[in-house]
């Protein structure tokens, strides 16, 4: 009953090759779980699989179970063997089940907030439409809830902001608004895919604080997908590191950063300025020049395979 989302033995594959090759992950309720990895590691696809949003060419197998605390109104599709409150299986779930889960129980924000905001509708309209459609609120109620949402994500001057269009906000404010839209139906899980990657550090800091607050204020659990271990260190409670479709290490934040068990995790930290395993620039150059000779085709993390996988990730966004 403590896990909001439980992924077990998840496999995602295209016709020709696997993207995610059997991973387990438990998102603790009221926590931020970081999913780290480089491009092509399968981290984004894992997040998309939760919402059944994989590209048509990919198939998922295994299990993704969403804790069903407010089971009223939602059909518990095949909740055999769930924990006390029951849970909903999302892999292979019907359109109705996914429809009831998307946005209402599990919401998502992306790297580029413009993808989730309609450029020609006011922020207020987008929020109230969402609220009225999903929650059946009246016009006035929806409006006041929308204003409250903008206040919650710290968009300055919430009331006036309702009448403005997305392009009238800065990138950071747009990301906050995208988060507000995602939070509209009080989801229990928020999937955040590189939510701060496109932002400047000063703006990123604010969004990270917001994510932390949303979790600490209760209710929300966040699966934070990012390649940026600095961001992980700042907000994640637990961190799972993925590489080429597999989990190489999963540990509480502090343990991962101070006592990484896996060689790959250690190599990531070695290349990360400011980490306790940081190597000097000279050492890094030596490794780059001596250690990886002929890396092309040998399947290192830097090999072309990763680049082509990135196409798949990018294309789905």
């Amino acid at each position: 009953m403590t896990d909001a989302l439980t992924i077990s033995e998840l496999r995602i594959r295209t016709r020709s090759h696997p993207i995610v090759d059997g991973i387990d992950l438990a998102l603790r309720r009221g926590g931020i779980h970081g999913l780290a990895g480089e491009s092509g590691s399968g981290k984004t696809m894992t997040a998309l699989a939760v919402l059944g949003l994989l590209p048509g060419s990919m198939t998922a197998s295994g299990s993704i179970r969403l804790a069903d605390d407010t089971s009223a109104g939602v059909t518990t599709g095949g909740s055999a063997g769930g924990s006390a409150g029951g849970s909903i299986e999302l892999v292979g779930a019907s359109r109705q089940v996914l429809g009831a889960v998307r946005g209402r129980r599990v919401a998502m924000v992306f790297q580029d907030p413009s993808t989730s905001l309609h450029p020609q509708l006011t922020v207020g309209r987008q929020l109230t439409d969402h609220l009225r459609h999903h929650l059946g609120l009246g016009k006035a109620a929806a409006r006041s809830k929308a204003e409250a949402l903008l206040e919650r994500v710290r968009v300055p001057d919430a009331r006036a902001s309702l009448a403005r269009y997305p392009h009238q906000f800065s990138g950071g404010q747009r990301q906050r608004i995208a988060i507000a839209v995602a939070l509209a139906c009080d989801p229990s899980v928020l999937l955040a895919d590189e939510p701060t990657t496109a932002l400047d550090v000063t703006v990123q800091a604010g969004v990270l604080q917001l994510l932390r607050e949303l979790v600490d204020d209760g209710g929300l659990s966040i699966l934070l997908v990012t390649h940026d271990l600095g961001v992980m260190s700042a907000v994640a409670d637990e961190v799972t590191v993925m590489r080429q479709g597999l989990v190489v290490e999963s540990a509480p934040r502090e343990q991962l950063f101070t006592a990484p068990q896996d060689a790959y995790t250690r190599s990531l930290l070695a290349a990360l300025p400011g980490s306790s395993f940081e190597e000097s620039p000279e050492e890094l150059v030596e490794e780059l020049v001596e250690g990886r000779e002929g890396a092309a085709g040998s399947g290192g993390s830097d090999a072309p395979v990763a680049a082509s996988d990135h196409d798949v990730e990018g294309g789905a966004r």
């Binding site: 000063t202 990270l208 604080q209 700042a234 907000v235 409670d237 934040r253």
Partner: peptide, 18 residues
């Protein structure tokens, strides 16, 4: 700018937002 850089020290310190 410098205060906003998240440090990868595993301590869970939030960077300062201006």
């Amino acid at each position: 700018l410098l205060a906003a850089i998240p440090l990868p020290d595993g301590l869970g310190r939030l960077p300062l937002a201006p």
